[in-house]
């Protein structure tokens, strides 16, 4: 189980500061949720953490190794990335998609070894799409596509996974299934999410971004307060625990309703 640490990360485009002095940590197989309105910098932050963009200031560490000491290939052997809505025009089978996860372990001309095949099998089984492995990727539903992407990530045998709103475009059942699955992996995950209720339920720790800054961080219970949500999202909410399950519940109050109040 790996650890991701970001210290003092900043990033600007044309003097426009998109991320400002970000600190965060994810470790020990915990699921850390990254919340914030559109444009708050969630995707940008994930890109910096994945080494896809270079920060202007600050550092990222995987365990105790600075990100800049990794080659792309070596990093890909411990860190996997799941994007929100990828597409391909190639007619790939599900298994071929998952096999891409072995890319950082294979030589340029090496065929897949038996070990590679076993790892791919395990990833397919783990994400419960082994029965669809010979189907064409294009014929899958949105939920199945994301499970296949997660299987591809697992085939990288990662110690950490970064996920950028992986449940966008999924129906409720598939959102729940996906996050439930993530919780059983025991891999350190940093996941950008939109839905506050899902975040409250499935994340061990939350980091709230607004205008490129960390506004709050901590357990869902401590972070998700009506005041904070009003500040960040500009929406009034009721927060309570659902009586039968005891799960933290965020109820949105429509702006018109608030006005009457």
């Amino acid at each position: 189980m790996g650890r991701i640490t970001a210290t003092g990360l900043s990033w600007s485009v044309k003097r426009n500061r998109l991320l400002d002095n970000i600190d965060l940590e994810a470790h020990d197989g915990k699921i850390v949720g990254l919340l914030g309105p559109n444009g708050s910098g969630k995707t940008t932050l994930l890109r910096l953490l994945a080494g896809l963009r270079r920060p202007d200031a600050g550092a990222v560490h995987y365990d105790d190794t600075p990100l800049r000491d990794f080659t792309r290939r070596v990093l890909a052997r411990r860190l996997a990335v799941v994007e929100q809505d990828v597409s391909s025009h190639d007619n790939l089978t599900v298994r071929q998609v998952v096999e891409l996860g072995r890319t950082p372990f294979r030589g340029r001309f090496d065929p897949l070894t038996d070990t590679d095949e076993q790892i791919v099998d395990a990833a397919l089984a783990r994400t419960n799409i082994a029965d669809k492995q010979h189907r064409s990727w294009h014929t899958l539903s949105g939920g199945e596509k994301q499970r296949a992407q997660l299987a591809r990530a697992l085939a990288q045998q990662p110690r950490e996974i970064l996920l950028d709103e992986p449940t966008n475009h999924l129906d409720i059942r598939h959102q729940l299934e996906f996050l439930e699955l993530l919780g059983t992996l025991g891999i350190t995950c940093l996941i950008a999410l939109h839905d506050l209720n899902l975040a409250a339920r499935y994340c061990d720790h939350l980091v709230i971004l607004d205008h490129g800054q960390v506004i709050a961080a901590g357990s869902p219970e401590t972070v998700l307060t009506p005041e904070l949500i009003n500040t960040v999202y500009g929406v009034d909410v009721l927060i309570d625990h659902e009586p039968t399950t005891g799960i933290l519940r965020v109820t949105y109050l429509a702006p018109a309703y608030v006005a009457v109040d």
Binding site: A76, V81, L92, L100, T103
Partner: peptide, 18 residues
């Protein structure tokens, strides 16, 4: 391998170590 990895886009390929 790079041409294979490009199938889901640049960032995807980079995240696979290309």
């Amino acid at each position: 391998p790079a041409l294979d990895a490009f199938t889901f886009g640049w960032d995807s390929a980079a995240a696979l170590g290309i």
